[in-house]
Design a protein around this nucleic acid. Structure first.
Lengths: 171, 171
DNA sequence: CTTGACATGTTATATTATAACATTTATACC
DNA sequence: GGTATAAATGTTATAATATAACATGTCAAG
């Protein structure tokens, strides 16, 4: 990790800081640093395209469509065909560095890569911000529900659409 | 409702009967009857296309893509353009008679329409059966997680991918 | 310095979804 | 019953999302 995290960034451990004002430059730089460490640790490569896609996703706490990402990549001299974006996004998702938001058919950077988590997402329909929420209790409840019929969960999708605090005020 | 339900159909109140052997003809007829009652109650119309789409979805405890449904409709003399299927599916979803499974970009019939529920889905990757699981505790946990950041949930998607009991044995 | 694995580029196409407008069908009111 | 109105369906066209298949390039191990 790039620095003594907890002291420098109170709230970075709070999952849905995305909705609150925060030092985003720090927030994204930190996620990128963690991502690099993680990838190195696994003996994988954070190539220029992959790294750039992650940076693009980290710019905002929003979800971007694959074609939005692709447009950005193309403008910067990378390939301009869909597989270029999808491959990088798939890699990032497989490594837990990005998440697919199914309700939006879009992708968002993971805000705490490396930490084991099956995240839940809060999607604000006002400002389009996407936040990761603490999902352990949610997952536990889902496991119980599944267990009652002997179903074994391998992957899960937990997403909520609604309004963040700011947008509730605005409305 | 078409009959004295609980006695006649033990297990129909159990959400994930989908994975177990059951009297499916009854199961689907009952869901259809409930759907008709609900729609009538609201002063809406279960037109031939809508009714047929619901019947098609009720044939199996699986999710069908809009184009799968459309192919069936077209073969039966209904329109053969995408909006025909999407409009019927949208209607059914709005009325709580069908659910969209986001992980599959597909739709499945609701197995207990009318009962207030924000369902969780168990999707078996072995046999493709989709079951509705009791989601109240899951939703409660999600509400708590959202509440911590003042987020207000309006709609949610809870889906688990994995293996049903039968397919675990097979593997 | 070459081999093999991985990554990227490229072409083409598949799949999912919606906008916009025309036509038909059902309902409500007179 | 007959007409106005709303609702549903049909149709044309296109948008948005995603992947298959293969060619080319890059990098690291031996």
């Amino acid at each position: 990790m790039a620095h003594s995290h907890i002291d420098a960034c109170p709230g970075c451990e709070v999952p849905d800081l995305a909705f609150a004002a925060h030092d985003h430059a720090h927030c994204s730089a930190d996620a990128l640093a963690r991502a690099e460490a993680l990838v190195a640790e696994k003996g994988l490569r954070l190539t220029p395209v992959r790294r750039r896609v992650l940076e693009i996703l980290l710019e905002e706490h929003r979800a971007l469509g694959a074609y939005d990402v692709l447009t950005r990549l193309a403008a910067e001299g990378f390939g301009n065909q869909p597989p270029v974006a999808y491959r990088a996004l798939d890699f990032l998702e497989e490594q837990g560095l990005a998440h697919r938001i199914r309700r939006l058919n879009a992708f968002t950077a993971c805000m705490h890569p490396g930490e084991a988590h099956a995240p839940a997402f809060l999607i604000c329909r006002g400002c389009n911000v996407v936040a990761e929420a603490p999902a352990a209790p949610v997952m536990a409840a889902l496991q119980v529900a599944a267990g009652q019929s002997g179903f074994v969960i391998e992957r899960s999708t937990i997403e909520a659409l609604g309004l963040c605090p700011n947008c509730q005020v605005a409305a």
